[in-house]
Design a protein around this nucleic acid. Structure first.
Lengths: 112, 112
DNA sequence: TCGTCTAACATAGTCTATCTATGTAATGGA
DNA sequence: TCCATTACATAGATAGACTATGTTAGACGA
């Protein structure tokens, strides 16, 4: 029983989580982003690669992030992503909507 | 511009919201459930009929709710649903998972 | 230098769940 | 008799995350 605690990413929140993760690091490559989300969530959430990379592609196309090929510390190829101003704006929008809906659900779940 | 404030139901939460709504009323028919969710959410969330009725069907099949045809106050046909013990258990499970994931996302969204 | 391992990226296809659009039946009122 | 409304129902579209699989290139031991 050493499987790590782990829930799937709720549909609709992945972009927000990636954007938020990028917002607090100068730049990151894919694996770093996934690890970062896992760690920052207290090991509750894990992004699968099959979700992560398509999401990064979509966000590149939308102009929310830019990506540049580079080298990791141990000299491997990796694509480094960073937020654009549009991405920062999008993050704000998504967090706002997330909080609104979250509070609404909280109201419904209240005991009573 | 009198469109009511309204966000879509986040995927994966509809069953929980319906179960919770039923848990606080002896019994309700479909329209009442939808109105109840809308009202209890502070008019933020609205369940579309095309989501509501299929969800009720699924939950009938799973044995989480039972439904009986009856009459509304103004003598219209309506199907009245109520929770089963299994439905009550399911509600607990879903709320627990929802809170766990919610907190995890909250951690990630923390400023810093 | 050979062979294997792994990191990192990529994508096709599937699945789940909500939404839009549409339709039915039944009741009450004009 | 005709129409509006309530309540239920369902087909099809759509979105988004998952599983499964594949590719590439560098690391590293023998």
């Amino acid at each position: 029983m050493d499987l790590p605690t782990r829930d799937p990413i709720p549909p609709g929140t992945l972009d927000m989580l990636i954007l938020k993760t990028l917002s607090r690091s100068e730049e990151s490559h894919g694996f770093e982003i996934a690890e970062s989300i896992h760690r920052a969530s207290g090991s509750v959430l894990r992004v699968e690669e099959g979700s992560l990379y398509p999401a990064l592609q979509r966000m590149l196309v939308k102009g929310w992030i830019i990506g540049e090929w580079g080298r990791t510390a141990d000299n491997r190829r990796a694509r480094y992503y960073r937020l654009t101003p549009a991405g920062r704006k999008q993050l704000e929008t998504e967090v706002e909507a997330y909080r609104r809906v979250s509070e609404a659900i909280g109201l419904i779940l209240q005991p009573g």
